[in-house]
Design a protein around this nucleic acid. Sequence first.
DNA 1: CTACAAGCTCAACTTAACTTGAGGTCAAGC
DNA 2: GCTTGACCTCAAGTTAAGTTGAGCTTGTAG
Lengths: 147, 147
Amino acid sequence: MAPVTELTVGQVAMRSGVAVSALHFYEARGLIRSHRTSGNQRRYGRDVLRRVAIIKVAQEVGISLAEIGTALASLPEGRTPTRDDWNLLSTAWRDGLDHKIAQLKKLRDGLTDCIGCGCMSIDKCPLRNKGDRLAREGTGARRLVAT
Amino acid sequence: MAPVTELTVGQVAMRSGVAVSALHFYEARGLIRSHRTSGNQRRYGRDVLRRVAIIKVAQEVGISLAEIGTALASLPEGRTPTRDDWNLLSTAWRDGLDHKIAQLKKLRDGLTDCIGCGCMSIDKCPLRNKGDRLAREGTGARRLVAT
DNA sequence: CTACAAGCTCAACTTAACTTGAGGTCAAGC
DNA sequence: GCTTGACCTCAAGTTAAGTTGAGCTTGTAG
């Protein structure tokens, strides 16, 4: 009964709101997968929509495609992510988000505290030191919110 | 009395914790400035330390170098930023920070709400839609925390 | 059966924020 | 007066996450 309703790239692009080129890109990165028609055109299962949705949400939370890829790879291959899968991922990501929020708050509070002092001394300013510690958290990441 | 104690790039790099190449880069971007010795070497006034500190803090808060440059440009040319100057900048940036924190919180809460639903439908999931709106906030910015 | 939209691949371009390297100069110690 | 380390300039490379374009193939509507 349920006709497996395969989707073309264009359709996925339209329904997910990401560009076709981005879908190609995600596929090259192993984040999504497709099979091909006899004419070499991509066809996607419905699960791709959910995967793309997850990708976008995760990105907004500040997770890199690489990390998203790792997380998605942990899901049963080719299966539509279940509620439990999603549960796992979102919980982990939410924790990361909490962490990030906490960091920003610290920064903001430091900013507030520092408004009066005007020192910004590298050695003495609490804001600077807080910042340094923050900046060193990731391994060699120089991008702002790499993690 | 106060010997104006000029600093070399190397010294600034050491004391500020940023690479020499980064200082060159900031200078090229107009974020800091130096004058040259007869032998064409850079010499910095002490104010550069504060400027660099401001740059780093602002970056951690997710402000781009371009924006930082604009803000710094509004400071009296060549003067060591005063407490009032810093006050102005930090207040403005703190507002941005508050905004960003609020956004992330919304996202986190959406994530929490969605844990059970497992839907992630593009059209119906509140998280997705919230995210979309968020993503469209900046003008064509595709980088995560461009603003 | 023929347009023409939609797909395909692959390479190159984009932006931010730097880093790395090549090739050459300056300054300070011995 | 020479060696060594810090500087200088300028060009090219790097990463992330895609986009853009060229040149070619598919598929579908009329």
